[in-house]
């Protein structure tokens, strides 16, 4: 993860977006969301990523919704992250909300 906008955490960002670093990522995102609003997240597309990270971001979206905060991605995902989303069935055409969030795309069903 490159950085979390609006977060001044000096902890070095983890090298992967996988279950190996998921505890750290959980901490980073929780901290970011407990601070300023809005929170925008950015990460490289070529980083190692697995379902645990996608799940974590979905949890963060839910929290932000519950707290009336804005949580979004700095830019649309590609590369590895997009592949995981596709394989995991996150980008189903029946769920336009997902495309909006992950791909910054408007889908007309």
């Amino acid at each position: 993860m490159e950085h979390i906008a609006d977060s001044l955490d000096p902890t070095p960002p983890p090298s992967s977006l996988t279950i190996r670093d998921i505890q750290t990522l959980h901490g980073l995102i929780t901290k970011a969301l407990s601070g300023k609003d809005p929170v925008r997240v950015a990460f490289k597309d070529d980083v190692a990523v697995d379902l645990s990270f996608i799940q974590l971001i979905e949890a963060a979206r839910l929290s932000a919704r519950n707290d009336g905060k804005t949580f979004s991605l700095l830019r649309p995902v590609g590369g590895n992250v997009r592949r995981v989303l596709e394989r995991g069935g996150f980008l189903s055409p029946t769920n336009p909300d997902a495309a909006r969030f992950w791909l910054h795309e408007e889908v007309t069903p």
Binding site: H26, I29, S52, L56, A59, L62, F90, T94
Partner: peptide, 17 residues
């Protein structure tokens, strides 16, 4: 394939592993 997110808890309740 469609994922079902309905059981994903919010950030403060999730065990991320």
């Amino acid at each position: 394939v469609r994922v079902d997110l309905s059981r994903v808890p919010p950030l403060d309740a999730i065990k991320p592993t």
